[in-house]
Structure formats: C-alpha cells, structure tokens
Design a protein around this nucleic acid. Structure first.
Lengths: 246, 246
DNA sequence: CCCGCTATGTTCGTTATCGAACAGACTGGC
DNA sequence: GCCAGTCTGTTCGATAACGAACATAGCGGG
C-alpha cells in the first residue's frame, strides 16, 4: 500500500549527503559524474583536522559539501595567514592535477561538515582525460588565483576591521547557518593578526549592530551593513567566483 | 673533430634571440617546440608597456626571454601591489588556457627586453592537446601560486626592508646585469608601500654595503649579505621554482 | 650649459598594529 | 554545582608604516 515508491524516491529523501552539493561536481555532465561517483567516498570533516601538511604528498582530493577547509601558509617563525578558504564551491587538492605533487600550504578544517574525497591517482587520471571535468577544475583554479591576488592586496592595504568583515561575509556564503562556530583566536590566525585586534574590531562591529558574538560563536545580523564596512575585496571575489562558475 | 655540426651551430651563435631563452619553451620536447615556433613572434617589450589590462580579453600570451613583466593588482582607491613577477622562467597569460578569458590583474613591463608572443587561440589549442606542453604550463602555474601564497604571507608579516631585499634578489635572478634600472617610486608601487619607506630601507641597505644606487639605478653588491637581510620568502620561492621546473 | 623635470632625502606629527601581561567570564566535564 | 581550562576584555608602551609637505640634487633636452 504505502511504500509502493521505488527505492529511488526513498533513497533521495533520506540520503543526507549528495555529491552534487559540491558545486564543482554539480557542474559536471551527468555521464561524467556517474563515472566519478564510484570513486567518491563520503568523508566527515572534523573541526581542526589537518587535511594537508606542507611538503607532504597528499593522498586524496576533497570536495567539501557542508564543510569549509582553510588553506594556510605558515612562516618560519610560526605566523600564519589564510590564503584561501574552500567550501562547496571548490576542491582541496589543486596540486594533485597541476603536477607539483606536494603543496606549500597546509589545509585545516575550519568548519566541521562533510566532503567527498577521491584517491589521487584516480583524480589525476580523470583530469588528464581532458573534457569538461578538466575545464571545470582549471576554471576553479583560476578563480582561486583571483582570490589570492585579492587577498594579497587586501593584506597590504586594508584595515583589520575591513578584513574581518570581508572574511565573515565570505564564510557566511559557504555555510547554511547564520551562526559561525569559531573563536576570535581562530579568526586571528586566519587573518594573520593578533587576537586582540580581532577582539577590538569585532567589538566595533557588534556595537554597530552588524554582528553578535559570544564565546566561540559569531552571528551576522546585518549582512548588507557588514558589506558596507568590508573592503571591496569581498565583492570582487564573489563576482569572480560567480563569473567563472557559470 | 669538433665543429662537425652543420649550419645549426652557426645559426645558434648568430641569432640574437631564441625561444629557448625562455625556460618553459626550453623545457618542451624538440618536436613540440618545432611545432610551436612558427606561431611564436619575437616581440620587443618596452619599459612601462601595459601588456594586460584588468577585465580585458588578452590577445596574446608572452614568453619573456630578457624582459620582466610584473603582474599587479590595483585596489579601488588606486593602491597597487605586485602579485608576481614573470621573467624567462614563466609566461604571461595563464588565464588564456585556464579558461577564464579575462584576468583580474594588469601586467606591466618592469624591465625592458624581449619576449616571444603567441596568439591566444593557437595557444589554447596547443594547450588542449595535453601532453608535455600542458604539463609544463600547469606546473608553472602551480609555481606561480606558491609565489603568491608566499607573497601574501610576506605582505602580512615581514618588514619593508626584508621585502625590498627579497624583491631585489628575485629581480636579479631574472636579469643578466647586476644593475637594475628602476626608480624607488617604481619599487614602492611593486611592494605596495610609500616611496619614502623605500628610500629609508634602501638607505639602510646601502650603508650596510649590500647595494648601491643612484637616480634610477640600483645595483646589488653583496648578494649573500642581502639574502641574510631578506625574509625566508626569497629562498622558499626560489626552491619551489627550481623543484617544479625540473 | 643651463633650466626644468623628476628622483631622492628629510622632517613632522599621526595612526594602526604589535607584544606582553593580566583580569574577568563563560562553559563543559566531573 | 564547582572547577579548570579556555576564551574574551582591557591596559600599557613600543614601533613600523603612513601622509603630507618641502628641500635638494641629478639628469637630459633645448
């Protein structure tokens, strides 16, 4: 009586995660995706997990769906900066198909969630076939480069408060919830500034009514207002990502 | 005995410019290079020439031989930073094969000299054939990303004097002469700092006997000493370029 | 050979960020 | 319900880089 639905409908409604939640995978043709799916392994990403270590050959590429991974650069004396964040719009593991084997960056899970991962040989193999998959990946790589260009300019010329605003907005765009789970210390490491500078900047944004935060949480209250405080970098990167994704 | 070589050796010694002076072209197989040569056009690069304009579709890719091109990012209020320099180790026009069409950067000739250029359709076509050319270009792209990662960290964490040292060393590596033709104003734009800051830093380096400069010229006197003053970024990028070029 | 342009030098006060040190407050686990 | 550990708030002085204004000096074209 009930339950006459084929297994498909049941599966579709109950499946909590699908590869298509990642925009790069979603951009593939049906055929390509189908061929790739057997090699994709759902993988939980826990906050703080070290996905890539600089100088080591990575074994997998990761397509985040609900998680966010942060790519970092660490200087000799331990100071860090985020070079890019990767959410469901991208992939972690560019170097696997670019040919360099190792990366100079480390990759850390910044927001817990899910990702699909693929073994590096298979990944490279599929990339080398050319076609749409290659095109999608290269375009994304270029979008990533734009992000880094912009970040470099931003680090040089914009204030901590502007950068914080920008970073919060960019992170919001990658998650569903309006509540980000992270400490000020963590954000400080992302932006490569002191924790106190974040406290101060966040204080300003809060008294302006743009965000609200408590121990370990930050919520954006007024996205538009925050955009006005942020530097142009946010908009530039967002538009470029949209342009290259189309 | 020796010289049993034919006309080839003669041509090699008299030709003032050869595509092989560019390391990427030199890394190609003989066959690939031969197929590419008919499409390569020798091209003089004059100081200050605007090679690429942000947002415009470039018509050529450029393989510098003796020239240096600087990729810039310009912020809304006109402030600039160099994101990468491209000399004979690279190519200007990544976006042509990455698929994004336009670039967000502008490219300016920083040191006059020579380059070989190739029309963008042909370039893309050759790239899409895969093979060694593609591999070489992608590897270079990755090296370029490393440079930008490092620059971002550098802009955040290192002093103007360190950055100036680094930049001078990197530039020296790309030219034959020990005498760089550039003003302090120009260098300031590269590093995204005030001209006065460069005057000050250069003054220090000069009194330490590491460099010598006069109106429009800077010469490096003590490369090793300069490396000691520079931040790690110089060495990191140099090693990575070497690694990925091999 | 001189004039004007442009590059460099120098000064001043101002600002953002740093670095260190410590106080207070929240939260999760027992 | 308490305690330990961690996160946040606040202070202080130090410093690097900024912004503007002006002085000097070298170079190249007429």
């Amino acid at each position: 009586m009930h339950k006459r639905g084929t297994s498909l409908s049941g599966a579709a409604t109950t499946a909590p995660h699908r590869p298509q939640q990642n925009k790069l995978l979603a951009a593939l043709t049906a055929v390509e995706l189908e061929q790739l799916v057997p090699h994709l392994e759902g993988f939980p990403m826990r906050l703080g997990d070290l996905v890539y270590e600089p100088g080591r050959q990575p074994q997998y590429a990761y397509f985040p769906t609900t998680s966010i991974v942060s790519l970092h650069h660490v200087t000799e004396n331990g100071a860090t900066v985020e070079t890019t964040g990767v959410g469901n719009e991208g992939v972690v593991g560019i170097s696997l198909f670019m040919g360099g084997a190792t990366t100079s960056s480390s990759a850390v899970v910044q927001t817990a969630g899910y990702a699909y991962r693929i073994e590096h040989h298979t990944f490279k193999q599929r990339f080398d076939r050319g076609g749409h998959l290659q095109q999608v990946l290269l375009r994304y790589t270029q979008a990533m480069m734009t992000q880094i260009f912009q970040s470099a300019a931003c680090y040089r010329h914009h204030s901590v408060e502007q950068q914080l605003s920008r970073w919060l907005l960019a992170t919001m765009d990658r998650v569903v919830s309006k509540d980000l789970i992270l400490t000020q210390e963590l954000v400080a490491n992302m932006l490569g500034v002191r924790r106190e500078s974040i406290t101060e900047a966040a204080g300003h944004l809060q008294s302006a009514g743009l965000i609200r935060y408590r121990r370990g949480h930050i919520s954006v209250l007024d996205q538009t207002g925050l955009e006005a405080r942020a530097c142009e970098c946010y908009g530039v990167v967002k538009r470029e990502l949209a342009r290259l994704a189309s």
